[in-house]
Nucleic acid binder design. Sequence first.
RNA 1: GGCGCGGUAGCUCAGUUGGUUAGAGCGAUCGACUCAUAAUCGAUAGGUCGGGAGUUCAAGUCUCCCCCACGCCA
Length: 569
Amino acid sequence: MARHLITSAIPYINGIKHLGNLIGSQLPADLYARYLRARGHEVLFLCATDEHGTPAELAASKAGKPVAEYCAEMHTVQADIAKGFRLSFDHFGRSSSPQNHVLTQHFAGVLYDRGLIREVSETQMYSPTDGRYLPDRYIEGTCPNCGFDSARGDQCDNCTKQLDPVDLINPHSTISGATDLEMRETKHLYLCQSKMKDQIAAWIDTKADWPILTTSIARKWLTDGDGLQDRGITRDLDWGVAVKRGTEDWPGMEGKVFYVWFDAPIEYIACAQEWVDAGNGTDWQRWWRTDSGAADVRYTQFMGKDNVPFHTLSFPVTILGSEEPWKLADYIKSFNYLNYEGGQFSTSRGRGVFMDQALEILPPDYWRWWLLSHAPESSDAEFTWENFQSSVNKDLADVLGNFASRVTKFCRSKFGEAVPAGGIMGAREDQLIADLGARLADYQSQMDTIEVRKAAAALRALWVLGNEYLQEVAPWTTIKTDPEQAAMQTRLGLNLIRLYAVLSSPFIPDASAQLLADLNADDAAWPDDIAAALNALPAGHAFTVPEVTFRKITDDERAAWQERFSGQR
RNA sequence: GGCGCGGUAGCUCAGUUGGUUAGAGCGAUCGACUCAUAAUCGAUAGGUCGGGAGUUCAAGUCUCCCCCACGCCA
């Protein structure tokens, strides 16, 4: 038994995420966490909401609420949706937690002491009307290069010229439309990532087993141009972690907060503290401090590719730069994007399926199965309703659900609702057990290496073995000449359902639990001996015939959903 | 413009350090079965592995050029 720390990239507080966000991080992380727990490992699975920054402030003001209140509400909304998808976080924290404030300030102080934070004076656009400094992308004006009248402060969307907000003609705030913008001199803190680039590069070089996507993105940032650049870690905002050196005030930095990308990953650690403070754990240090037992923890991070730079570079700079014994990631699993029906998911245009909507139309297992079995691992993947319908109907309803149905209903009609006695296993059964063992080894190997799609395929192959066996031995025929033999075959079939329920639980936890309940099976332990596992339900054991485990998606439903989520409305 | 990930059967994708007739699932066709959610099982068809050149006894798998898609950066 090993100890596994697992974190999923923390979703931004601003609004409900779509299915692409789900499969990009939280869902595969949950799959891995459930699998490792099922294998008997000790797991701490953490996630949180990322709550600071300008978008949160703007969303709150749009909703007419104080930002703290808005974030608290949205946190609850996201937590409920996560429960709806059966994401098995040990704690779902908040980057705005007091624990994270203290820890973020601590890291800043330590990094400053190590000479890894420097102060930089720069000018920035201030809007008296909005009462805030404006990030470049919230300023628009006329492009000095091409005359386009909606050029953004960072870049002109028309001629693609890189811009500075001061270059814009007639600049205005996109928040209020205010034109009385002025340049103000302001001081900010920069994290000296460049000083750490060799150390980070050396660390990445040791990770030959990481996904190519992860290492290639990291290497690109390490070697592009002059190499890893220093980055600003403060902003002129109200909502966030106040800039301090540990517990000391930071002269000249009054009224400023740390930028989200600095405090967000630190929340992974703070989240473990929240977990303890919430009364769900007793010792967070043994997961995070290598001097307190975390040295033998394996830490795996999950994220979409847009988050890779923060996890391979910035956060490691924070951890390593502190020279304190914090746990560093052992494995970083990253995902590409999920597209929707030939384009991208679009939050603003309502294009694609969002997590709350998905749960309105189908139970979580349907989504979990499709998303995981089509996870965008090697390249971007695409969601289409047609593919979703055919995959779910075939894999879940036909191959697995119908297997449970045909076995239990046959048993009920011929032997009654209890596991039948009699008969002896022969060569065909030995063969089945050998095949199951080989497939199980494959499945476990894919899960161990977090090859999500391949794991799904291996699991499906296990389900197929049951149908093959049943079709071949045909108890509905055997029973006419040799009822004892048919009883043995049926008993084996019933036990296969239990085995499948156990093995499938990381992917489809609800269906798994329901099948186990219908079978009155109290043994849900991961099998280490297939033959023994197929005797878990003994002769005479009573069961209930399951309701339809997975219903099929009809053509009409598919068409209606396709229309509903097209973003046209 | 630079860089990155890809471009393999109608669709979604596997193809390890280059090595026998390029694989899987779905879909299609044919057959078997009839316990089951018009489910299942078997068989068959289908690919000049984006295009071109090169290295090699041998290339989907390495090198170069080009084309396409997506993304990141400038």
